[in-house]
Every structure is written in C-alpha cells, then in structure tokens.
Design a protein around this nucleic acid. Structure first.
Lengths: 251, 251
DNA sequence: CCGCGTGATGTTGTGCACAACAAGAGGTGG
DNA sequence: CCACCTCTTGTTGTGCACAACATCACGCGG
C-alpha cells in the first residue's frame, strides 16, 4: 500500500495527517464495499469512531463527494454513490484510453526495483488464487493498479486514472460478488487477473511499456464486457438496486 | 410540493444553490486571474462578501482544493495554486490526448442548433479581435471550450477536460498578459484563436467531429509550445515568480 | 553587530449548539 | 376505508467561539 506509509507516529499526527488518514480509510471502505452503494452514512457515527467532531469529518465527506463517491442531501443523509450501467460504460470507455496513455506519456525508466515489485505481486497473486477470498482479491487488484499506474511519470494522468479506478472497481466487485453464489464467475475473474498480471509483468521485464499498456487496455475493456453481460443476464436490475434482497428475506 | 427543482431563483436559493453559486464565482475569479497565482485568500473576507459565515465558504474551498486550484495551509492561509512549467507540460500533454478523444468517444449527433452555436461564437470572436480586451478574450475562450466539450456525450471525459482546462488556462492567460507589454504576443494569440474557431466550426458544419478534434488537438499542443518558448525567452523565471517580472524588465 | 529565543498577531482547524430540511408516523375528517 | 394534514424524529447545513499553528517583529545576550 503506497498510502499507509505512516512516517508520523499515530500520536503526533497533525491536522493534515488526521485528515488524510480518515480520507484514505473511508475511500478504502467504499471501494471494498464495506459501505455498499446506496448505503447511508451518518456523520455523527463517523465522528465518534475517529474520535473527532463532525467538522473534520465533513471536510472528508466534501472531498469524497467532489470525487463522485458520495452524495450529501440536506435533511436526508450522506449516501454512497451508485452508478448506472450506461454511466459505467462511459467511465470504462475512458479508462481504456487512459490505460494506453500510461505506456505512451512520459513512461518511467524500468529498473531492477520496478521489475522486482512486479514479480513480487505476481507471486502473491499466484498464492492468492488458491484462497479465493474476494476481499483479498480486491486488495491485490488495487495494489496492482497503483503499480501499473506508476509506469508513467505524468502526475495528472496518474491522479485521473486513480479517481476513475476508485469509481468503478467497487461496482465491478459488487457484480462479481453478487453472482458469486455460483462461485464460477468470481473464480473466473481470479484466473483472468492472474494472466493479466503475468503478461504485464513480462512486458515490464522486457522494458516494453507500450506492450504492457496495450495488455492492460485490453483487459479493462474485456472486464467491462463481462460486467455488462452479467448485468444483462441478471435482468438489468443488478446494477441499480442495492439491498432490497435482504430486506425481502426478513421474516 | 416535495420537489425542490426550483430554477435557483436569486431570492430563495437553498443551501445547494448558494454553494454552487459561490463555487462557480470563485472558480471563475481564479481562472480570470482576479485572484493571481500565489495570492492569499482569507476566509473571513469571502464570508463577509457573500453574506455568510466561514463554514459554507470552507466547503467551497475544500472542493476547489480537491481540484488543484487552491492549497490551504494551517496557520498560513489559502493560496491560489501556481504551477511549474514542467508540471504544466504534463497537464498539456494529457489535454492534447483528451481533446482528440472528444471526437472519438461517444460523439454527439450534429444538428442545426449545434452548428448555429458554433457560428454564433465565431461571429463574436471576429468582432472581439478588434477590441483586443484580454478579459473578454479569456471569457470567449472559456465559452468556446465548453462548446467544443459538448461534442462528446461522455460525461467523465467532459468533467476531466474541464478540470484540466481550469487548471491551465489561467497560466496561459498569465503568460500572454505578462508579455502583453509588447502587445504583439497577445494579439498573436487572438488571431490564432480566431483561426481555430473558424476551422473547428467548419469541421462541425461538415459533421466531421474527428477532424474538429484533430484541429483542437493541434492547437492545444501549439499553444503550449508558445507558452514554453515565451517562458524560456523570459529566463525561465516567468512561470515561477509572481511579482519579479517588473524588476527584471528594469534597466 | 549578529544570532536566537520569545511573545504578538493573524490565519486555518475544531467543537458545539442551533437552524433548515426531508421523511414517516399518527391522528382526523370525509 | 382512504386521503390528507400535522407533528415528531432524524439528518445535514450554518454560525460562532476557541484551539492549533505559522510567521514576524522585538528584545536580549553574546
């Protein structure tokens, strides 16, 4: 995790550090479906959990809202954003292009450390496939994304790719998990991701970042194709409704 | 009437409308150099001007900070972001690619209304050249950007292009205005922009959005080339220091 | 004359109480 | 029995006082 590099001890963190910590934590929770799309967050609860008042919490929520992950409505609550399949298609359409740009715009010089990091994540990916834990899968997927993103030195491109990643990955995870009852689709995603990591790692070892970005581009496009197909086969309501299933199961 | 779809009438605007109004106002001021890069803003002054307390102002500032236009430092102030020429190069590098994507990703269907809007802005552009008012130039440039951006229906692409535009256009304007003492560079930008609008308007009339985006791409790239050249000829300090220009021109 | 600690001053960050607002429960008249 | 109105409840938005922090001027000692 490139984010949790807490050089400052938990005790003497200033206002800036506290803000960053809460922000990263909430974003991770949204991305890992700890907060499901459509779920309502209460500022008071968050304030109590992090040991602060509502004021700094609101700061974080405003930023997350600016990134499209939340939506605050006066008198109602703060709601985790859901996303329609048409809108998701647009985001993926753009992500595909940005992935290719990572290999074209200001690519980094490949050194031993970079290759080692790709090999290391490939190893962990191979081990992870046996466990088949969705949460761990999501975490490695995120880590791999950041590693791939570091192949360009173009800061705006990195920031925008990251923002779009966080907008979409939770929807992808939700779709895969929802159909995980068969455990076939999710396992399928595991294997495909394993291949993607292996291919890109090899391309990076060869110093061919353009090839790496093309592989990445293709996988992102195919990933959304699978999502769309799964959504359509589920009757199209998959990506819209959030938690009506468990409510109906109450008895 | 549970609906709150009020047209944001000036009198009874709700909390949401007030937030949006202040946000747009401040962003426009930053973009039009009413607040110069490096300038320090005081929350108390803004609160007094808009007739509210510091709290809603801070909401707006947090959002503007998330977009990279501001930077708040505890105990110091909120400072309008400046940008180094290397960083500016990265943003332009990305803007160039995104401009081309506007013509490729989900292009809109060209109808009479769209053509009319391009013609109308071309007319106003031709009239504006005679006056040579930098502020009016910046405003039409912004308007034309939004019009060009509306050529795609891809919402994330529009949002990101807009964000990058607001990050860079003020620096471009600053560079052109700073060298406006000769009044040649600024006038040059006027004429070039006029040609760009004419070319793109014609491409749109022909329904060839790909051509329009290629023209746009070329002009964005050339625009940055001119900025870089101007910055280098000014000794490289142009884009970094705020008020040293007049001192350097002395003697 | 210079380096340095120390307090004054101004700014953003935080906590808390209250206002504005939306949604649902419950009563009431038809 | 139903439609509608009102009140209650819970949430986000706002205002204000104070704390945390950075900067700079001033004075002191060397």
């Amino acid at each position: 995790m490139p984010f949790t590099t807490e050089r400052t001890s938990p005790a003497d963190e200033g206002a800036r550090g506290r803000f960053e910590r809460i922000y990263q934590t909430l974003r991770m929770r949204i991305c890992l479906l700890d907060y499901a799309p459509g779920e309502r967050l209460r500022e008071e609860d968050l304030a109590q959990e992090f040991g602060v008042s509502r004021t700094p919490i609101r700061r974080v929520l405003v930023k997350l809202e600016a990134e499209g992950l939340l939506r605050s409505v006066h008198g109602v609550g703060t709601i985790v954003s859901d996303i329609e399949v048409e809108e998701l298609a647009q985001v993926y359409e753009l992500r595909v292009e940005l992935a290719e740009l990572v290999g074209k715009l200001s690519p980094v010089a490949v050194d031993g450390g970079l290759v080692a990091r790709f090999r290391e994540i490939k190893e962990r990916c191979d081990q992870m496939v046996r466990k088949a834990d969705p949460r761990e899968f999501a975490r490695i997927n995120m880590e791999f994304f950041h590693l791939f993103n570091s192949l360009t030195t173009n800061v705006p491109l990195r920031e925008i790719s990251e923002r779009l990643y966080y907008q979409t990955t939770r929807i992808w995870l939700k779709t895969a998990s929802r159909l995980g009852g068969y455990e076939q689709l999710l396992n399928n995603e595991f294997v495909i991701f394993q291949r993607e990591v292996a291919d890109i790692a090899e391309a990076v070892e060869n110093g061919d970042l353009a090839a790496a970005s093309h592989v990445r581009r293709a996988h992102i496009a195919m990933s959304f194709s699978r999502i769309r197909r799964a959504a359509e086969s589920a009757g199209g309501t998959l990506l819209r409704t959030a938690g009506a299933g468990s409510e109906a199961a109450r008895g």
